[in-house]
């Protein structure tokens, strides 16, 4: 690791100020950033830890939506997101217990790893990403592998999820990394069904619109069976070919619908 200064502000306002410094970077739970720093793939001059900021933590349900502070750990979401069981179940299955103790929702979606779990939930729920300066719709937030709408120094303060009527996340786990080889999140709202896929596309998380149309008309696993596998360029690596991943999307979507009931 290259050397850096470490600061740990107590309030959001102090953190915003500290992140205004040249080459300053936010530290969430560090479960992605610390390994990255060890590989010398990042070289911040100042690391601004968000872990001491109480106002970034917590889960609140109100008026049909669930708001999760940007600094809330996966373990806390797993325990406290009772109003949105599919989301709590997703959080309970990220990585391992130590990763869940420290890793945060803000860090996960800011990173936008193409195989991460949370981006699928955020996109399928049509959630709103709240930052220190604005609100960003999920459809505008994710902009391809490891790329988001965030500006330098912008902090995710919360993610607001409209709670669906039914939802389920199916993760086909890559057993060594525990990330999703492919993951599909299906959420049914009064206005229609949304389906988001992680782990598969070279573009990162995406919506499978053909499945959304079919499921909005008929919310049954059989509605997906007749569809062609989604197009677009799929990830191919030693764990699975592009065709295998495309096939998994269809299988997991059917399973998610069946499990959502």
């Amino acid at each position: 690791m290259y050397a850096f200064d470490f600061v740990k502000p107590k309030t959001l306002a102090e953190a915003v100020k500290a992140l205004g410094a040249e080459d300053a970077q936010a530290l969430g739970g560090g479960q992605t950033l610390i390994p990255t720093l060890k590989q010398r793939l990042a070289q911040p001059a100042v690391l601004v830890s968000l872990s001491g900021i109480a106002e970034l933590k917590g889960v609140k349900a109100a008026g049909g939506s669930l708001t999760i502070g940007g600094g809330t750990s996966h373990a806390t979401v797993a325990k406290e997101a009772k109003a949105y069981p599919a989301l709590a179940a997703l959080a309970a299955n990220i990585g391992d217990p130590a990763v869940r103790s420290l890793g945060t929702i803000g860090g996960s979606i800011a990173n936008n790893d193409p195989s991460a779990d949370y981006p699928a939930a955020v996109l399928a729920s049509g959630a709103t990403v709240v930052t220190n300066t604005r609100e960003i719709a999920a459809d505008d937030f994710f902009q391809g592998m490891f790329t988001t709408a965030l500006e330098p120094g912008e902090i995710i303060t919360a993610v607001r999820f409209p709670v669906p009527e039914k939802a389920n996340y199916q993760k086909f786990e890559q057993p060594a990394s525990r990330f999703a080889l492919v993951g599909v999140f299906v959420a049914k709202y009064a206005a229609g069904v949304r389906v988001a896929v992680t782990g598969a596309s070279t573009e990162g998380v995406f919506r499978w619109t053909e499945a959304e149309k079919a499921l909005s008309a008929n919310f049954a696993a059989s509605a997906v069976a007749g569809l062609a596998v989604p197009g677009g360029e799929m990830i191919a690596d030693i764990h699975g070919s592009a065709a295998y991943r495309a096939h998994l999307i269809k299988v997991l979507t059917g399973r998610a619908v069946a499990a959502a009931g």
Partner: peptide, 16 residues
């Protein structure tokens, strides 16, 4: 354990 939570001490900064 840090404040009762299980963590990987190779993926946590001392100052944090």
């Amino acid at each position: 354990h840090v404040n009762g939570l299980q963590v990987k001490s190779c993926t946590t900064f001392a100052l944090d």
